[in-house]
Design a protein around this nucleic acid. Structure first.
Length: 114
RNA sequence: UGAGCGAACCAGGUGAUCGCUGCUCGCUUUAUUGCGAGGGGAGGAAAGUCCGAACUCCACAGGGCAGAGCGCCGGGUAACACCCGGUGGGGGCGACCCCAAGGAAAGUGCCGCAGAAAAUAUACCGCCUUCGUUUCGUCUUUUGGCGGGGCUGAAGGUAAGGGUGAAAAGGUGAGGUAAGAGCUCACCAGUAGUCCGGGUAACCGGGUUAGCUUGGUAAACCCCGCUUGGAGCAAGACCAAAUAGGGAAGCGCUAAAGGACUGCCCGUCCGAAGCUUUCGGGUAGGUCGCUAAAGGCUGCGGGAGACCGCUGACGUAGAUGAAUGAUCACCGCCUGAUAACCGGUAACGUUUAUCAGGAACAGAAUUCGGCUUACGGGGCGCUCAGACG
RNA sequence: GGCGGUGUAGCUCAGAUGGUUAGAGCAUACGGCUCAUAUCCGUAGUGCCCGGGGUUCAAUUCCCUGCACCGCCA
């Protein structure tokens, strides 16, 4: 267990606005009950996470909580997630009351390796 | 027990595992690259952005007008529209709370409908007088006299009474009159002037004089007094790919257009072409600004208080697709139910245990001082009502 | 983060600059025209003027405060 990398640095994050905007054109979209997961496969060999939580999700506290839960899921399950794409996770407006277990169940279906 | 008022306070805790982000130290790397250790890491409102400042740039922030803001008095403060104390007014049985609270006799405007009339008062009904006309009664031989009534009648006097309205030009009583009226008088209310006393002042108390009385609205224009240049950390400074060819400085010329300084005027500055010198300017991106602060706390002193002075130790988040977290365990808190002990006739209360549920509002973005709004909790002091003793 | 603006009929907008009366177009319903539909003509309905408080006799309008939406600034 000690060797598994569960860190989450800036190199694991999507930092540029242009990449977020390019997600609108992507074809690799998976929709679930509370999230939309977009895969950007052009950047093979890198695995990064970007999160979008607009004001429709809730106030700042609720948006921060949703983003932290998604980040936590990504961090703890990096070894199981496909490592050849950028993932943009968009939170829907009904996602503000989720727990970590619910986030895990939902996102593991969309993002884990087959 | 119930209802309520006030001023403060807290904003779950501990541990384990896995993370995020600054700082310090050590090692390391081309490179704050990577590793390790230590230590720090959201709020009372961080919110709304409603005021006030610090700070930065615009010219060193200029003159006048306009505009904007404020508006009882005194004090506090860096400043304020904030705070404290008081005055006046209003609300509440009360504890206590609320008030944009200068001027309406400087001027202008507005006051729908209703009503006679809505601000120089007026005169619809009514009341009264005179005249005209008509009719009845009565006296007289008659002309006519006296008395009463009427008129879509005329002229005049009134404002007591009437209804309307948010508001009707002081109120009550007496005198007075043809009828009436502050027309006169007494008392009361109110206004203005003046005098005395108290208070730093707002203002309060009392006397006296006047006219007998001058509606509301300034969160309508306005007048008076005070304050006020504009933008805002996405301010601003620096480094600097790609792309495009220009940018900067000086000379020159100062007329105009234009631009900057504030909306306007004044004033000031820049400003065409040309020549010379020079290589920078700048988007993406990055660095600085960036956290030590009109700081809170302890003690002493001053003050009625806001607050001030001295003293001591403390050193308190700095992210930038944006950190400050996730999971688990235990403890603590609140609510409800059940049970037990104790107190009590009882309602019920304290404590303990078990079960179930809950834990609000909300996330720094340059930084402070306020205001406003959202919201969980327990204790303290006080008021009113009821019950029991 | 900062700055600015807008909320009026089902929809798009007027409105009064200065308080007392809420309007237009489209849409809807009904009637007429037509064999029928559309067009056209006529008639009608409709508003807590974004919420709360204040000033005023009276507020959609003036003032304060909250909510929602929109735009601009590197």
């Amino acid at each position: 267990m000690a060797n598994i990398d569960e860190s989450f640095r800036k190199s694991d994050r999507v930092l540029k606005r242009g990449i977020f905007l390019s997600a609108h054109q992507s074809r690799h979209v998976r929709r679930s009950r509370h999230f939309v997961v977009v895969e950007l496969k052009e950047r093979a060999g890198e695995r990064k996470l970007g999160i979008t939580a607009s004001r429709r999700v809730g106030n700042a506290v609720q948006r921060n909580r949703v983003k932290r839960l998604i980040r936590e899921f990504f961090r703890r399950n990096k070894s199981k997630i496909k490592n050849d794409a950028y993932f943009i996770v968009i939170a829907k407006k009904n996602s503000h009351a989720l727990t970590y277990d619910e986030v895990f169940n939902e996102l593991s279906r969309s993002m884990f390796k087959k």
